[in-house]
Design a binder for these strands. Structure first.
Lengths: 125, 125
DNA sequence: CACCTATATAATACCGATTATCAATAACAA
DNA sequence: TTGTTATTGATAATCGGTATTATATAGGTG
C-alpha cells in the first residue's frame, strides 16, 4: 500500500473536518484545493485507512457512511433530526457482551452500541 | 392512512417470510400471487408500517434494510459472511442507557445494540 | 541517478437500493 | 352514489458506492 498524496489528503480531510465526515464531505473539502481528485480515490482511500485502523467507519443505518479519526473506543449518537453523528464517551460493548454470555448459536466478534436522540442544536430548533 | 389490500399484503409477507426480509424479498414474495404490485408500493407501505410500529426497520450498516414483524424488544446479529440477520433474545438497551446516566448534551431516546459475528451455517462453511 | 513495474490515479460507466413524479384508481365519508 | 383525497402502478431520477480502464507515479533495483 503506497503512500500517495491523495491518501494523505483523505486522512487529513477527515481530521480537519472533525465532523464524522462522509465520503462526499471529504470530496468537497479536498476539491477546494485539489480540484482534480476523483471520487473513486476518496472511497478507495477511506477503505484503505479503515483497514489499517487509521479511520473508523461509522455505520449509521441510513444513508452514507461516516468516518471518524478518533480511534479510541467510544460510541456515537445519531441525531434523528439532522442525522449528524456525535461522540458519546465510554465503552459499553464489553459489558453487553459479558452480560450476554457465551453463545451457542453464533461466533460473536463484536457489538455495536449506537445511541439515537436529538442533539442540542436541534433541540433549540 | 387507508387500509389498502397492498398494505395488508406487505405486512403479511414480512410475517410469512419470517426471515427479516428486505423490500426486494417482500416484492418477490407478493408478486407470486399479485404480479401487478409496484415496488414503490412495497417501500411506501414498509415505511407506513414502521411508523405505526407494526414493523421494525433493521439497519444493517450495508446494503438493503431488513424488516422485522417481531416487535418485542430484542437484538440482532448480522452475519459478516452471509449478511443475514438473526435474532438475539434479551434487551440490553435499558442497562446501557442506565449505566450511561443522564446526558446534558443530548435528548437520548433510544439505544441500538447490534451484534456482529458468524452464524452457525456459515461457521460450518 | 535513471529505469522499471506494479500499484494508484482520474474519469467515467455502471450498479443496487431507494425516492420522486404523476396520471389513474380506489378507500371511505357524506 | 358521489366527491375528495390518499394510494397505486409505472417509471424516471437520485444517491451512495463499485467496476473498468487508460494513464501516471511511488518506490524499489541496478
Amino acid at each position: 500500500m503506497r503512500n500517495t498524496i491523495q491518501k494523505k489528503l483523505v486522512y487529513e480531510a477527515v481530521c480537519d473536518l472533525n465532523i464524522h465526515a462522509t465520503a462526499d464531505q471529504v470530496f468537497s473539502h479536498i476539491t477546494l484545493k485539489h480540484p482534480t481528485i476523483s471520487k473513486a480515490t476518496i472511497y478507495r482511500n477511506l477503505h484503505h485507512l479503515t483497514e489499517t485502523g487509521d479511520l473508523i467507519n461509522i455505520g449509521t443505518f441510513h444513508g452514507a457512511a461516516h468516518y471518524d479519526h478518533n480511534c479510541h473506543k467510544h460510541h456515537h449518537l445519531i441525531c434523528e433530526k439532522c442525522r449528524r453523528v456525535h461522540d458519546v464517551q465510554g465503552d459499553h460493548s464489553k459489558a453487553v457482551l459479558e452480560s450476554l454470555g457465551p453463545s451457542t448459536e453464533f461466533d460473536i466478534t463484536d457489538c455495536n452500541v449506537t445511541f439515537l436522540g436529538i442533539c442540542k442544536t436541534c433541540e433549540k430548533h
